[in-house]
Write a protein that binds this DNA or RNA. Sequence first.
DNA 1: TAGTATTATGTAAGCGCTTTCATTTATAGC
DNA 2: GCTATAAATGAAAGCGCTTACATAATACTA
Lengths: 335, 335
Amino acid sequence: MATIYQVSELAGVSLATVSRVMNNNVRVSEATRNKVLQAMEQLGYRPNSIAQSLASSRSNSIGILVSELHGPFYGEMLTGIEAEFRAAGKHVIIAAGHSERATEEDGIEFLLSRNCDALILHVEAVSDQYLIELNKKQTPFVLLNRQIAALADRCISLDNELGGYLATRYLLEQGHRHIAYIAGPMWKTDARDRFHGHQRALAGYQLTAEQALFFEGDFRETGGSKGLQALLASGRPFSAVVCANDEMASGALTAARELGYEVPADFSVMGFDNVNFAYYTYPKLSTIDYPVSAMGQMAARWVLKQVYQQSSIEVQQVFNPQLIPRDSVAEAAIT
Amino acid sequence: MATIYQVSELAGVSLATVSRVMNNNVRVSEATRNKVLQAMEQLGYRPNSIAQSLASSRSNSIGILVSELHGPFYGEMLTGIEAEFRAAGKHVIIAAGHSERATEEDGIEFLLSRNCDALILHVEAVSDQYLIELNKKQTPFVLLNRQIAALADRCISLDNELGGYLATRYLLEQGHRHIAYIAGPMWKTDARDRFHGHQRALAGYQLTAEQALFFEGDFRETGGSKGLQALLASGRPFSAVVCANDEMASGALTAARELGYEVPADFSVMGFDNVNFAYYTYPKLSTIDYPVSAMGQMAARWVLKQVYQQSSIEVQQVFNPQLIPRDSVAEAAIT
DNA sequence: TAGTATTATGTAAGCGCTTTCATTTATAGC
DNA sequence: GCTATAAATGAAAGCGCTTACATAATACTA
């Protein structure tokens, strides 16, 4: 592999000049620039990014920590992030945190040790305090899907409360009055926020959430099916159930079918996230759209702007969910 | 951030010694090793991976190129890869190729310019020739889901032909004799191989694929629904349709329902890949399992073995698909 | 046209490590 | 106790770039 030195020799200029044309910031005369460019071409020169990093103390790499690499949700997120960075010539180092505190902290350590210029974190288990401490260190980071007051300028999140509100309001508008709720793990902020939105929507109709119609699931398919069974077993009547994410909604759908119920004839089901498979379920899942790819992209832009000084970039920090009506919700039968 | 120099000072030894204890290969006396370790501890020293890379001309990073970052398939693959490398302290740089020649080549260039120690490629559009050329360059690579004779030792792939065979044989065993086929884009090797397997299974029963019962899809959902419509429109009777992947099978399922058919009562549907949502469809999709996560992991191991000399590692290059019977296939009605 | 401000280029000192080779120190053999 | 050998450590030369700072070339001013 050719080095900058060989290029400089061939072009008959100094190292510094070659470096300058690469980073075309300082003025180099057209004539020498061309000479250099030609020499590079001729040698098939490609700068050594490692050496560049060491000399400039910029690695041009951004560390990404997500809970999982698979699953419909994170894939979308990564797509948004990668596209944005690749266009900017930066690269992305990825690690998985598996929603466990130790693994997440470990992942952050790992990325830090890789000299990332910035981090994009989708962490769930790590404490606010830990992140606040992390913020005192050199490496800047953005938080996806998390709100911490002390770190507000570093948070990119969805208004989960609004999403929860929209889901339930839609059901109410369809005439439903007995609405069951299958929540996510309540230690997760997004799970809590979604539920609060649900409560607010209910309150708008002078209703409150019934204890018997509440089930705390795990954001997984099995949680949804178990939840539905529990709800049914409670004996309390309901005409609709809102699930705090699509996986659980899908589980609920399957369980309903297996137990001989028909959705939405017997009761309606509402999901959350609008994950790609929501479209494949039967009936197609009515849900709340989580613009996860756009949010990933925005996190990337935040980094471009704050860390790489691309000041012209606009960053949006709070995103709004949107109702996606499909086939799993129907009007409530007249009671 | 503390540097190796400060550690050496604090420990009262030379740079070289510190370096040695880090890479604990050369013998260092217990006493000094402890002194150094303690000094590191005290300073919170973390080696600068960039400097290490430059000095050792090892970046400890592996470039991964997949078609997409989202979608059920690649996510699994990445999970397998990442887990394996992280445990080995290597990191992964990811790029998307979008199944387009230019973007794929571009992605490879990009990863190469990042000084990756090795590449793991899941490329579809790039030519064999290009890869053979690439093989002459420094950076070693493994190919996932591709078979090139000249590069056989670098290929990790599924026996797609066998998969196609298994799918159709299963249908035949269930009594089906008129079997339609919705293929992937036939310029893709895996699409062709799967179809060949289909033909072989048919041949085992003295049957041949009928032209009228063949449709070339695009591996997407829409391809499946269009395909089913076309097959139905052909007027040729069939009692089962095998789809070259799960997405298309899902499309076919949806189309069937919309057209008033019931699966598997009216005809059976077979998928391929056993992608996560295959379980969420209705009816649950009978399919062929593609052990994609295991294959990703194996690609990572190949790299560990060949590039990082972890010679004890065993590598398996060809994987076998497996039949996953679920609900979308039933026995053929007696004709 | 000398004097000054600009612009273009070169020189050389790092960036934080690894690694070869030389040197010192310990261990063993007789 | 003295040499022969092995083990532990140190000195220093890079790895391929970036970037002050210095210098040379050119343009502009009065």
